[in-house]
């Protein structure tokens, strides 16, 4: 499988503030990728770089093997649903589909009309009078009917109520399966991504903390609870992600490919939410041991 998104030392600076720095990332094709991180972590910046809306200050990024957003061919391959799912308030739903048809050579009108009909949207209704959920669905419909190879969505459900969120994610997943789309979507809520994504990228303070397939991440992360111990005393193949201590007890989150044999530990699995939170919480995060990095 080729990579849908590759970044090497990618950085974007606004004035003196780095919105994203030294981001290195390799996302294989055929996944629904969740990009998660707190507000201001650089998710929108990364996605805007991927869609060609921004140009990088440092490093480079390739999407589907090409430079983002420079020529019509690249634009055709990548769909992007921007934050707050903008639509033309004065245009009707049908006019939005017409816009899509006019501006995209690969436009799939049958899919678009079918989706609009299934959503129960009135083609004659102006987008300005649609609810937030309906507007997001309309934007998603345009993104899907463009028939891109990769669909990028920036916080598409952030402004939606729980029911609209579920419907949106469902529609997105169905389309991803039906049209063999790769999808990258961002959110600051893990619960949005939990059901939908099979690949996860955690971005904190403009840096990628962890990236990988969800199944693999869940299988290799463990919570160890036991008597107090220094993290350095753990086996070398166990990468300590976080450590918290009470007077007598230590709790570690470790990442390892091998089984944990030490009987002093009570080993438990992490949920996806716990896993993400571990990476988000900077107070317990342990910097990777340099020695370990060299050996791996």
């Amino acid at each position: 499988m080729t990579a849908v998104l590759q970044a090497r030392g990618l950085g974007k600076r606004y004035g003196r503030h780095w919105a994203l720095s030294d981001c290195t990332l390799d996302i294989p094709a055929g996944h629904v990728v969740g990009l998660v991180g707190p507000n201001g972590a650089g998710k929108t910046t990364l996605l805007n770089l991927a869609s060609g809306h921004l140009t990088p200050t440092t490093g480079e990024i390739t999407v589907l093997g090409g430079r983002p957003g420079t020529d019509p061919n690249q634009l055709r391959k990548v769909g992007f649903v921007a934050q707050d799912t903008p639509t033309y308030a004065g245009f009707t739903v049908a006019e939005h589909l017409r816009l899509g048809a006019r501006l995209n050579p690969g436009w799939d009108d049958a899919t678009a009309r079918d989706r609009i009909a299934r959503l129960g949207l009135d083609p004659g209704q102006r987008a300005g009078t649609l609810s937030g959920g309906q507007r997001a669905q309309l934007a998603l419909t345009i993104g899907i009917a463009k028939r891109p190879e990769l669909l990028i969505l920036d916080e598409p459900v952030a402004a939606l109520d729980p029911l609209a969120r579920r419907e949106f994610m469902q529609g997105l997943l169905e389309a991803a399966v039906e049209h063999e789309l790769s999808v990258v979507l961002s959110s600051h809520l893990v619960s949005d991504l939990e059901r939908a994504c099979d690949y996860l990228v955690v971005l904190v303070d403009s840096r990628v903390q962890v990236a990988g397939e969800v199944e693999e991440l869940l299988a290799t992360h463990h919570r160890l609870a036991g008597p107090r111990r220094d993290p350095d005393q753990l086996p070398r193949d166990q990468r300590v992600v976080s450590a918290s201590h009470t007077d007598r007890q230590s709790t570690f989150i470790v990442r390892t490919d091998s089984a944990i044999h030490d009987p002093v530990w009570t080993v438990s699995q992490l949920s996806l939410e716990d896993l993400v939170l571990t990476y988000l919480d900077s107070s317990t995060r342990v910097a990777p041991r340099p020695v370990l990095e060299v050996q791996r």
Binding site: D71, L75, V78, P86, T87, L103, N104, I142, G143
Partner: peptide
């Protein structure tokens, strides 16, 4: 102002055009 450039710039047409 209303952000619709982010809709239209993501269709298969360059900004210059």
């Amino acid at each position: 102002e209303v952000g619709t450039h982010r809709l239209v710039w993501n269709q298969s047409i360059t900004r210059t055009r």
